[in-house]
């Protein structure tokens, strides 16, 4: 049997608003990059003898996908006519798979119907919606099932055991993960090919698998979202804080997206200079800086100190407030008493 190669991806969320970036211009660039990555994956598939590209759901976002985005996706698929595209709708793009879109799909792309098995001779592809059951498949073929959902949530792996499934291509989780279905098959989350926010850090890409059982994750994203913790304990001026941040990211590509979290203890009267750190890391595509530093407090001294500051410290410590609020209130109160600038985090 000839070895067939497949590219498994999911959760592209094309035309996503990317509200969490908080910057319309950057969000627009990133939206274009989501589509570019899909185009690059399609070109990769064409150039590397991939038989089929499986998109396991959430190709689009929120059902508010523009017609232009759908046309672009269709155009990309059409341009790579030598590859067959198998599309499954997910929880975010049910409405996007409307008649217009399916009618505009090129000949080499198909929207999988629920429970429909498409037979290509040596392999089959079955689309499943909502964790629905699958009838036993031909054991002599390489059977690919495509689903979108949460393992151990709406997708019960045990329901797919014994159904002669070789590869359960899953979408919904935005990180690569895999496990075994039974002695024959594996379930794999390809993760999303591009991180859209700082809750999607880490390497992103797609999964390449073949009918001989091979499977590997291929990093492919244009940019990674990175959350970098920078300890600025004792650094009492912005120059040293900026230097610390720079050192923390110097080995990382400038094109990535950075969330810099300033941590550590600073002396009273010293503030984390969020703006300076952000400016100091300029030249990178996206930088967000948050301040989670705490004041370096001599708790014992403050607990015993006979002063307004000491009394304030004791009052905050005794207050029934979440720890994070206490941290911010202490910073604000001390800054107010010291006459230094009160900054918000």
């Amino acid at each position: 049997m000839e070895k067939k190669l497949f590219l498994h991806t999911a959760d592209l969320h094309l035309d996503s608003a990317l509200k969490n970036l908080g910057d319309a211009a950057k969000a627009a660039v990133r939206r274009r990059e989501l589509t570019d990555t899909f185009a690059r994956m399609a070109e990769y598939a064409s150039s590397n003898g991939v038989s089929g590209v499986i998109v396991a759901g959430d190709m689009f976002d929120e059902g508010k996908t523009s017609a232009a985005a759908k046309r672009q996706a269709a155009e990309i698929m059409k341009k790579n006519g030598g590859v067959t595209f198998f599309l499954l709708s997910g929880n975010h793009d049910k409405r996007a798979f409307d008649d217009d879109f399916t009618a505009a799909l090129p000949a080499n792309a198909m929207a999988l119907a629920d429970g429909e098995t498409v037979d290509f001779g040596s392999y089959t592809v079955t689309g499943v919606y909502g964790g629905a059951a699958v009838a036993p498949l031909d054991k002599d073929k390489f059977n690919i099932v495509v689903a979108h959902g949460q393992v151990d949530g709406d997708i019960k792996i045990r329901d797919y055991a014994g159904k002669n499934i070789n590869y359960l291509a899953l979408g919904h989780l935005h990180a690569y993960a895999k496990g075994k279905i039974d002695g024959r098959g594996v379930w794999v989350y390809s993760g999303c090919p591009e991180g859209r926010g700082f809750d999607e850090t880490g390497e992103k890409g797609f999964v390449l698998f073949d009918t001989f059982g091979g499977e590997k994750f291929v990093p492919f994203c244009k940019r990674r979202a990175r959350e970098v913790s920078v300890d600025i304990t004792g650094l009492d001026n912005y120059i040293s804080q900026v230097d610390a941040a720079r050192r923390a990211v110097e080995h990382m590509p400038d094109g990535d997206m950075f969330k810099i979290v300033l941590r550590g203890e600073l002396d009273e009267g010293v503030a984390a200079d969020v703006a300076a750190v952000r400016e100091g890391l300029g030249g990178r595509f996206f930088v967000r800086v948050t301040d989670e530093t705490t004041i370096r407090l001599d708790e014992k001294r403050l607990l015993a100190e006979k002063s307004l500051k000491g009394e304030f410290f004791r009052a905050v410590k005794a207050a029934a407030l979440p720890p994070e609020e206490k941290r911010v209130i202490l910073k604000m109160g001390f800054a107010a008493l010291d006459g230094t600038e009160i900054c918000d985090d």
């Binding site: 006979k306 002063s307 307004l308 009394e311 304030f312 004791r314 009052a315 905050v316 207050a319 407030l321 609020e325 911010v328 209130i329 604000m332 109160g333 107010a336 008493l337 009160i342």
Partner: peptide
């Protein structure tokens, strides 16, 4: 949070006054 901080500062001031 600024309001809460001010409240706690007021509480601290009162406590201090009451202490001293």
């Amino acid at each position: 949070l600024a309001d809460k901080t001010a409240e706690l500062l007021t509480l601290a001031k009162d406590n201090l006054a009451n202490a001293f």
